[in-house]
Design a protein around this nucleic acid. Structure first.
Lengths: 335, 335
DNA sequence: CTGAAAGCGCTAACAA
DNA sequence: TTGTTAGCGCTTTCAG
């Protein structure tokens, strides 16, 4: 392991001089500079970032904690991709810790990142309860930004999407197509996005006079497989409904599969819609009607908040935009 | 920022004692231990991992470099998910650096991770040429494992999948179904997996007497969108073919969409197959016939190689297994 | 413009 | 069993 001292000796100067030419802060004589660069090349020196960060107390890392519950969705790749992208756009690197499946693991993950002296950490939490989150935020020496979740206690530490409003938009569309009895497949609980979406669904149903919404609710776990089974369960339940709204695209896609298998053409006999605007939805037959979620903006805002380049509170009010494709049709059965 | 010294003072002991109780290595008197724990709780002390790693020269980080060219595929989530999983199974954390779109960026990413003193780094490279990679490996102070690419120069630093063999398996199946003129949609170059798959496709075609394989080749970039367009181009080309093989599932799915739009039923009028066994393929109509790639095993081997818990050279010989579903049928047209 | 020396927060001999 | 002392590799005063 070649250190700065080795380079210094090789160049016949002191450690501090080497440090200076590397950081370009102080002024160093050109000839000396050349000498140092030559020594660096000869020795194959690579600065140790741990030592550097320890000395400067500055970090080039931004942490991200995600539950692996969302690992299989398209949501995950988009999130990670954009997180990496924006971090690097600001000369930082993304460091990643798995929140696994429990609040304890999620806390561990956050703790690890904080102790790694990240400049900040983004948390896509599924298990830590809000008050606990608020406590972590207030006690943390570095900014902690909570993703996809509203935090009353510290709004500027949360970047979220208004899933309730998004779900309303979708329900309005469905109802405008004449659907009244709309079934809902929810994701695994607890999940803020699911809760909000489900609530809007129920509220809209009630507002339109459907009062047995419970009978139209099915349970999934975000996976296609679970959407497939949830749709089967719904069908088996014997309830009347003309549309199925799933809490994400994957489940919607699974549901379509199940409906088709039962001889129900989509959208002719049954309409289906999802959330997230997963890439694959466009290539399905029928192409999936969905709600596009501005993940990219959310992450960008989070990163900028961490690095203090963004103070725009408006960014927390995202709600998504409807993407109309083929999987929703007009309601056939007049009720 | 509360340091170990603060804790020591608070407990009325020395730094080393605190360090000892924290690491549990040396024996410390129970009462002193209690004192220290109390002090830790009171001060809210969190060990600084940078300092710790600098002092011990041990790291709990494993790096991963990926080109963002693969970010949108299902390949990506599986890779990252499993990488995180196996790292954590071995008490390490995954740290992530974007290889972006050039060899220079990929080298930067590797360099960063090495300088962060990772225990090792896994590289899913798309741009750095093999000889360069070999050089990096030989000069690196920590193990560098190249993913998904054969490396003649240093076989024990490469964990790859035999894509040529995998493609042969698929071609054998297609030909067994009676297909002779099989079109191929390739991914963006350069890509070792694509090159191998394409070569096997061509060799098999030639072996079966088809000598104008060039006319049956279309260019994609791994995305569904590109598969869609490639299939359109193939159709527009006016060539006869009864099956389309795409270098990955996403392109295969895109191709199916285009074929359907042209009134070609899959698999009745045209067969389609892909590679990777993306989750979504199962829920498509028709469900996609594909080749399952043992990504999980590949990553596991890589992580274990880095941590020296695996010396089994057999693990480098993975080739994947055929997953027969509905998108390939018997060739209708006798030629 | 450059070098000496102290310090970042922790660990690890070595003594006591 | 515990404290003292030197580092780990880098930055950063402070002198010169």
């Amino acid at each position: 392991m070649v250190t700065m001292l080795d380079v210094a000796r090789c160049a016949g100067v002191s450690k501090s001089t080497v440090s200076r030419v590397l950081n370009g802060k102080d002024v160093v004589r050109e000839e000396v500079k050349a000498l140092v660069y030559k020594a660096i090349a000869e020795t194959g020196y690579r600065p140790n970032l741990l030592a550097q960060q320890l000395a400067t107390k500055k970090s080039s890392l931004i942490g991200l904690v995600i539950t692996n519950a969302v690992y299989n969705g398209p949501f995950f790749s988009t999130l990670v991709y954009n997180a990496a992208k924006f971090c690097e756009a600001h000369d930082h690197r993304l460091i990643f810790a798995d929140g696994k499946q429990s609040d304890e693991e999620e806390m561990n993950a956050i703790d690890f990142l904080v102790r790694m002296k990240c400049a900040g950490v983004m948390v896509y939490a599924r298990h830590i309860p809000a008050p606990q989150l608020a406590k972590i935020i207030s006690e943390s020496p570095v900014p902690i930004i909570v993703l996809n979740q509203q935090l009353a206690a510290s709004p500027d530490h949360a970047v979220f999407i208004d899933h309730y409003r998004g779900s309303e938009i979708m329900m309005d569309y469905l109802q405008a197509q004449g659907h009244r009895r709309i079934a809902y497949i929810r994701g695994k609980m607890p999940s803020p996005s699911n809760m909000a979406r489900q609530q809007a669904w129920q509220d809209k149903l009630v507002a339109s006079g459907v009062d047995d919404s419970d009978a139209l609710l099915a349970q999934g776990d975000w996976s296609m497989e679970s959407g497939y089974r949830a749709a089967q369960a719904l069908l088996a339940g014997g309830q009347r409904f003309s549309a199925v709204l799933a809490a994400n695209d994957d489940m919607a896609l699974g549901a379509i599969k199940a409906l088709k298998e039962q001889g129900l053409a989509v959208p002719e006999a049954m309409s289906v819609a999802g959330f997230d605007n997963a890439n694959v939805g466009r290539f399905f037959t029928p192409a999936l009607t969905t709600l596009d979620i501005p993940i990219e903006q959310m992450i960008q805002t989070a990163v900028e908040r961490i690095l203090n380049t963004n103070n725009d509170p408006a960014c927390t009010a995202l709600c998504g935009t409807l993407v109309v494709r083929e999987s929703v049709g007009r309601c056939a059965s007049e009720e």
